[in-house]
Design a protein around this nucleic acid. Structure first.
Length: 498
RNA sequence: GGCGGCGUAGCCAAGAGGCUAAGGCAGUGGUCUGCAAAACCAUUAUUCAUCGGUUCGAUUCCGAUCGCCGCCUCCA
């Protein structure tokens, strides 16, 4: 329930506050696009009030690029939206620290595997922090769950879903009838060997995938191997995710998410492994975010058009600006990255900051505006309705900008009282639990800064422009910009650290 | 070849069978201002890739065409 600063008598009679109960309930449901059904579905967790959530994590062998960042910002968006609805989210995200890439990378870097991957994991966590991504409950690592993976292979062998060949264990796709349902792939029409050098494998059927890979000589020498009844092996990516997801969240999780490019074959294989064992769906809702492009082409290190978050930070952009840019396109649409786009996000964000800053700096003594409270309520309603509609951030931002346009002129002439001001800030705060892009904290005036601002004001009153400009220059040296408004000066930091 | 997706103003981006096709950025005009910077206000698509069809009515549904993107069991 909304707390109305003036007691709300005036507004309680408006239609905003008297919607029929039923439609209100209906509106509050969260609709998510489920890849499995290719439709928006009402989200209902298995256990009331609780959500189990798994997100395919990064491989610890390269610095996170924007495509990866987007994936986790979307997963953060989902988590935060669920939490804003009062649900407790059990979120897990894995680290793939044991696979061809990490082993090859460590080899090339001349480092022990663990030391090599730990470096990337630490860098990744740093990136998530700068992007304002909430921490998951757990971050399982593939290398620390190998016994469970070997156990899965054993069980699949027992159930007749897997076979051994030359020391490697493969999953027999022909035994799993539901294979391909999530991605809608028709195995008989697939072009074999399109991206795989089939000569490297000894599978019965090229469509089968690896569960455990026989260790190579090089791996044995480095101690990267795990003993099993079939000899020394290491697990494949697919069995890793399957094991870590079910181990932490049970046979069926509410939501499994990652980006589109993992849909096939990875998620299909993950499902085959898990469901062959349990007979239960691996996840009730599959959510896939779209890719990040550069000039219309998929961003990847292979394509040579990689842009990392760290590179953007080096260029002076903030994590917040990157987050805002990545958030501003619907998650199921590709996002074409460009610096122009990032600059646009920066400008838009600056305008939002300007608003909250002015709101915070507003001198007391304003008079209540008759319509503002209704504007705020409308914005909040529209915003959360947009989020409930498959996380439509663009639409939600539209509600915010519309609000801004109505309220700015009011703010401009200080026609807001204290209660209205805090009502706006509280509402933005609620929306910010999802967006995490607003700067809502007040402008605490450091005494020396305050003194300078006062000195400048005195000088301006006395029309001593030279002294006024000196004070402004002094403030600039401290990284403070003063903006003169009809309500007096407003100040802000040139660059907010975050 | 198979599967999936996209094409809305200079750029970005929502939308949905019929109410003025949200909003952002840039542009233009104005207000404010000692200067400066910023900000605020106003304004910018007879039209939604093209061509057909369904319909009283489609940009929204269906079909075709053109263009672009992703995936097709290396790895992630």
């Amino acid at each position: 329930m909304v707390i109305l600063p003036d007691g709300g008598e005036r507004y309680l009679s408006t239609p905003l506050f008297t919607p029929p109960k039923k439609t209100e309930e209906k509106k509050k449901q969260l609709w998510l696009f489920n890849t499995r059904s290719k439709k928006k579905e009402v989200f209902t967790p298995q256990k009331e009030g609780q959500v189990t959530f798994y997100s395919c994590g990064p491989t610890a062998f390269e610095v996170a690029n924007l495509a990866l960042c987007r994936r986790f910002i979307v997963s953060d968006l989902i988590t935060r939206t669920l939490e804003a609805k009062g649900l407790a989210v059990d979120a897990y995200m894995n680290f793939t620290d044991l696979d061809d890439n990490t082993i090859a990378g460590a080899e090339k870097a001349g480092k022990p595997l663990r030391e090599y991957t730990e470096g990337f994991i630490a860098g990744f966590m740093e990136d998530m922090e700068t992007l304002g991504v909430k921490r998951a409950k757990g971050y399982p690592k593939a290398s620390e769950n190998v016994q469970a993976m070997i156990g899965i292979a054993r069980e699949l062998m027992d159930k007749g879903y897997a076979y051994e060949k030359h020391g490697s264990i493969y999953f027999d796709i022909s035994k799993f009838k539901k294979y391909g349902r999530l991605s809608g792939i028709d195995l008989s029409k697939i072009q074999l060997g399109k991206t795989v050098d089939l000569d490297d494998y000894e599978k019965d059927n090229p469509r089968d995938f690896t569960l455990l890979k026989r260790s190579t000589l090089g791996e044995l020498k480095k101690g990267i191997f795990f003993e099993s009844e079939w000899g020394n092996v290491r697990p494949s990516w697919h069995v890793e995710c399957s094991a870590m997801a079910t181990r932490n969240l049970g046979p069926t999780m509410d939501i499994h998410t990652a980006s589109r490019n993992l849909l096939f074959p990875h998620h299909e294989n993950e499902i085959a492994i898990a469901e062959a064992l349990t007979g239960k769906p691996l996840a009730n809702y599959w959510l896939h975010s779209e890719l990040v492009l550069v000039d219309g082409k998929n961003m990847s290190s292979d394509a040579g058009n990689n842009v990392t978050l760290k590179e953007l930070l080096r260029r002076g952009y903030t994590g917040r600006e990157v987050r805002f840019m990545l958030l501003s396109v619907h998650y199921r649409k590709p996002l074409d990255f460009s610096y122009r786009r990032l600059d646009t996000a920066r400008t838009a964000l600056r305008r939002l900051d300007e608003f909250t800053c002015k709101l915070n700096c507003l001198p007391p003594g304003g008079r209540p505006h008759p319509e503002v409270t209704a504007f705020v309520t409308a914005m909040e309603e529209q915003f959360f309705a947009a989020m409930d509609d498959d996380l439509n951030v663009s639409k939600g931002m539209g509600a915010i900008y519309n609000f801004l346009r109505k309220v700015y002129p009011v703010l401009q002439v200080n026609n807001l009282d204290r209660d209205q001001r805090s009502y706006i800030l509280e509402t933005l705060g609620r929306m910010n639990t999802i967006l995490n892009i607003f700067h809502l904290q007040g402008c605490p005036l450091a005494p020396d800064v305050n003194a300078l601002i006062q000195r400048r004001e005195q000088a301006r009153l006395a029309k001593d422009w030279q002294a006024a400009d000196e004070a402004r220059a002094e403030l600039a040296r401290k990284g403070i910009v003063v903006i003169d408004t009809v309500n007096g000066p407003v100040w802000k930091r040139v660059r907010d650290a975050e």
